[in-house]
């Protein structure tokens, strides 16, 4: 098993990259998701149509193809992104497409009565959203949001293909130089298992706090 120990360092480095991609893209995607969802619910016709097309494209095209379009495709128009930026941008774009749907469902699950009650005491749109609607929506959506974060983490694996040095990339390198893929990829699987276990644990804690009012 010494091979595994030898590669612990690179794997931990890869973990740093994987986590950075996951966390940054998840946060951005969630914010974009909230805005997109509000656009879908309360926006005008044109905005809604644009958002629908955006969501459908993100959900309809293979993830790896989207990544290639951002990394390779844009070069045709002179936009040359480094691998890490391309990876991060893709994860944000992709995540936002899914987050919009999650938030749309979550926000619509909060009853119309809550909007009306807030309006009736004179709260404005964004105050109502921030103080009344989103806290309840978040509590309702915790399972989906956990799922979403896990998905984002899993999606980061694709970026090794364009040369971003995440866990997957380290495993691939390790497999090539040690000729022991049976160790390297199983090790990668364990790393992802642990990380996802961590996400679920944190999510459970957050959920407990968010749903304290029930």
């Amino acid at each position: 098993m010494h091979v595994a120990w030898l590669y612990l360092g690179p794997f931990l480095q890869g973990t740093g990259v994987t986590l950075e991609l996951t966390i940054v893209s998840t946060v951005v995607a969630l914010v974009a998701g909230i805005l997109g969802a509000l656009g879908m619910i309360h926006g005008g016709k044109i905005l809604r149509a644009v958002l629908v097309v955006y969501v459908e494209l993100v959900r309809g095209l293979p993830p790896i193809l989207q990544l290639f379009i951002i990394f390779f495709g844009l070069t045709q128009f002179g936009v040359q992104l480094d691998a890490f930026s391309a990876a991060l941008i893709w994860l944000m774009v992709y995540g936002a497409g899914y987050a919009i749907e999650v938030f749309r469902a979550g926000i619509q699950d909060v009853s119309e009565g809550q909007w009306e009650a807030a309006r009736s005491v004179g709260m404005g749109y964004f105050t109502t959203l921030r103080k009344i609607i989103l806290p309840q929506a978040f509590a309702l959506m915790m399972p989906e949001l956990t799922n979403f974060t896990v998905l984002q983490l899993k999606n980061t694996t694709f970026v090794f293909f364009i040369g971003v040095a995440d866990i997957m990339y380290q495993a691939q390198q390790g497999a090539a130089s040690t000729e022991q893929p049976q160790v390297m990829f199983v090790m990668a699987a364990l790393f992802y298992l642990v990380l996802n276990g961590g996400i679920s644990r944190v999510a459970a804690l957050v959920e407990r706090r968010l749903t304290a009012y029930r």
Partner: peptide, 22 residues
């Protein structure tokens, strides 16, 4: 639970490379 937590790409590599090596 385990299959949902491991990225598909990792599983693909295990099936293709790791199984091949053993």
């Amino acid at each position: 639970d385990v299959l949902r937590a491991i990225p598909v790409l990792v599983m693909l590599f295990i099936a293709y490379y790791s199984l091949g090596a053993i």
